[in-house]
């Protein structure tokens, strides 16, 4: 190989080869395997049954419960994240500030440990009930209920809502807001007509990054739901680990994947009308 040809090699694509290997080995191959299991029965013959098994009573119930948890989690995250980001903006807390650090910090710890900590907080004799007792309030039985799962997923995914909204809002040109004020817009009108529309791409990223993982999680519901409540993720996990039924497990995974892709296509389409978001 001549030196001249060597120079022609695009350094960037050369550097991407480990990543390409990674993608093939750990994304594409597993996907092929999942599809193969999803479309065959135990004996290896082609079947649609595994994909259709989502419509059985148990599965549809777990699926709806997952959607409820994911939708609730997404809404709560938006309601918590938006005011917080606006407050951070108004207080002039920038990207390098301590507040951002505090938001990111928990993400450095293993998430199972953090969920186990919540289990200690919410359990019957836990920290929450201890504090309520000190305040003279009765104990609350929140452990092993849907509310406990909701607390867990909201806690876990809130940063993924805050960060994209934060990035979108911090990118808004201050001059736009000043111009709106000069033209006589009040605080709420500025928010409604300027800040909110410009933050929509960030908001959509946040929704995707919160809705999808909270819908597919299973560890949170196992730990905080006490094994009494099943998300679709738990059903899939069970099929693989205790049921030995990899075909049904894969079938349900594929159905879930299709559902997630459809909902993502919807948000991506919306987004392309606005400015490309920062994190997604």
């Amino acid at each position: 190989m001549s030196e001249c040809r060597l120079k022609k090699i695009n350094r960037r694509s050369f550097l991407a080869s480990p990543y390409a290997l990674w993608i093939v080995g750990f994304t594409i191959l597993p996907l092929i395997i999942i599809f193969k299991y999803a479309l065959t029965d135990g004996a290896g013959a082609f079947t649609w049954d595994n994909l259709l098994s989502i419509f059985s009573d148990v599965h549809i119930k777990a699926f709806w419960f997952s959607i409820e948890i994911a939708a609730g989690c997404t809404i709560i995250c938006i309601l918590l994240a938006y005011p917080m980001v606006l407050a951070m903006k108004n207080l002039g807390l920038g990207r390098k500030g301590l507040s951002m650090f505090v938001i990111i910090l928990p993400m450095w710890m293993n998430f199972i440990l953090r969920i186990l900590a919540w289990q200690m907080i919410l359990s019957n004799n836990g920290i929450l009930n201890f504090l309520l007792g000190k305040l003279g309030m009765g104990p609350v039985a929140i452990a092993n209920t849907p509310a406990a799962i909701m607390v867990g997923v909201v806690y876990d995914y809130l940063p993924y809502m805050i960060l994209p909204i934060f990035n979108a809002i911090m990118d808004i040109d201050e001059d736009l807001i000043e111009a709106a004020r000069d033209l006589g817009a009040g605080g709420f009108t500025v928010f409604r007509r300027v800040i909110f529309p410009l933050s929509v791409p960030g908001l959509l990223s946040g929704i995707v990054m919160v809705f999808v993982p909270s819908m597919t999680s299973f560890v949170v519901s196992d730990i905080l739901g006490g094994g009494k409540l099943q998300l679709i993720g738990n059903v899939i996990e069970q099929e693989f680990t205790v049921g030995y039924n990899w075909n049904v497990g894969s079938g349900l995974s594929v159905t879930l994947m299709i559902f997630v892709l459809i909902s993502m296509m919807f948000t991506v389409k919306q987004k392309s009308e606005g400015k490309e978001s920062v994190i997604w």
Binding site: S123, A143, G227, K228
Partner: peptide
């Protein structure tokens, strides 16, 4: 029996009794 069951656990079952949660 399920309504009477606090939770279905594996490894944590012992700890919950030790802690007095069940």
């Amino acid at each position: 029996q399920k309504p009477d069951v606090q939770s279905y656990l594996v490894d944590e079952a012992r700890d919950e009794v030790v802690a007095g949660n069940a």
